[in-house]
Design a protein around this nucleic acid. Structure first.
Lengths: 251, 251
DNA sequence: CGTATATATGCATTATATTGCGGAAATTTA
DNA sequence: TAAATTTCCGCAATATAATGCATATATACG
């Protein structure tokens, strides 16, 4: 049996049953468990399924909702959030853009700390509503339904009128050569404006985003002043970023 | 059963039943109580549910989405929302402000109907994010934490640049002599601007709001073109409104 | 045709993740 | 306050994943 043929079967089974279990596949396809593992790894790398312990799940647009993304490496995001908090000082003004990692940071903010938070993420704004001490500025604009952020010319103009001490950027994709990139063109304009008007630009990046690229480039990685990742990314993988003058933290 | 699959089931059950009980889940999913505990803990850490002793609850009303409400029987939907839908036509532009009644209306919108919706309510915007056909413009501004709406001079200016066919106003207080009034001064400016730039102004009012007054007056009741309440409001209580030229509907 | 190279597969080993269990601590309920 | 339930914690068993290496098969090339 050819590899591609087998992988196609795996995808078919996934579509039909809604999930695949590695051990079952090995038996049904009459190959070793290792081969199935490798197939799943490849399919996962090409984004055709979501690999999970013991098998795989579909990665259709329907399954990559905002809620789904919050389930992705939650403990890593928690670590990153805690490390990010170290940078905060009372009465600072922050830019925070959309994304599940920045949302986690918002939820982890110390309850007593007075902050001004400017964001284009409605879920983040709502999550901060029961924080007793922060003032929240929500940027308006057209809502991108998939990522739950607001974008548009008006949004960018609003950002240009504001300055922040820190911009906590949820990094969608980062690559030493390509730079920082995202899934939506309009989102890049917002990020660019926030980069331009913040003193520190701190990227929050969960491990799977490292050295990936998306469709729309925001800026070179040198726009970052700091990059917070998690323990699970090897030290040497961050070397290119350090050489670019970025302070890296493995939380 | 895959862990992620199981956690997804838990979230689905939570949406469907409004709560989950750890012991029940353990039995239904055929896993140990510990496993359910761990799942609940992870889901809670990811912010997808609120953990309570013995089970879990939805994290906040703000996160109940459009799609899950669509599953409910039409009977369960608020009568007011159903009456309001009668006014809608394809490709209209709507203003919708904050409040539970407008939120209910948003969740009840027909799934196929193309609409442009302009709102200053982040929860409403988020709830509509998985509606397949609406375009959502979220108005920016400072977030009032208690009522989860955005306000401010910029917000008002943004409204002044837009026109809508219908303004669905969540009525906080209405009184024939005092007029329409709300709890927050800044909110009155938004409502005034929306009133000025909409063809129809339809007030959505749950019964207990009738003939009450709050601190800040928005406008006389004659700003309304229509007023939708429930059957439980006696016909004669609406007489003063009818005499003011308002079409009243007891849904 | 024969050899070199690349690719695919399987196996053994080691690391990691998930799960269930028992007991201690905390919480709720009567 | 006592009883019942729920939650937390560490441990061990099992299942799954990653890694390095050997073998087989196919492909490329002189």
């Amino acid at each position: 049996m050819l590899k591609e043929e087998r992988q196609q079967i795996i995808l078919d089974v996934l579509k039909r049953r809604g999930k695949v279990v590695a051990a079952e596949l090995a038996k049904e396809l009459d190959v070793s468990a290792d081969t199935v593992q490798r197939d799943l790894k490849e399919l996962s790398r090409s984004g055709l399924l979501q690999r999970v312990h013991g098998g795989g799940l579909p990665r259709s647009p329907a399954n990559t909702t905002f809620a789904q993304r919050q389930l992705q490496s939650p403990e890593a995001k928690a670590h990153i959030a805690l490390a990010a908090i170290e940078f905060l000082q009372e009465d600072q003004t922050l830019f925070m853009d959309g994304g599940t990692t920045t949302l986690q940071l918002a939820r982890s903010l110390p309850a007593h700390m007075r902050l001004n938070i400017i964001t284009n993420s409605p879920p983040l704004a709502v999550a901060l509503a029961d924080h007793p001490a922060v003032q929240i500025i929500l940027l308006g604009g057209q809502l991108i339904k998939e990522s739950l952020i607001t974008v548009g010319a008006g949004t960018v103009n609003a950002v240009r009128q504001m300055r922040a001490d820190i911009f906590f950027m949820g990094v969608c994709s980062a690559h030493p050569d390509v730079g920082l990139s995202t899934l939506y063109l309009d989102e890049t304009y917002i990020k660019q404006a926030m980069i331009a008007n913040a003193n520190l630009v701190i990227g929050l990046m969960s491990p799977e985003k490292l050295n990936t690229a998306s469709s729309f480039v925001v800026s070179p990685i040198t726009s970052l002043t700091h990059l917070i990742t998690e323990k699970s990314v090897p030290e040497e993988a961050l070397l290119p970023y350090q050489e670019a003058g970025i302070q890296t933290i493995r939380a």
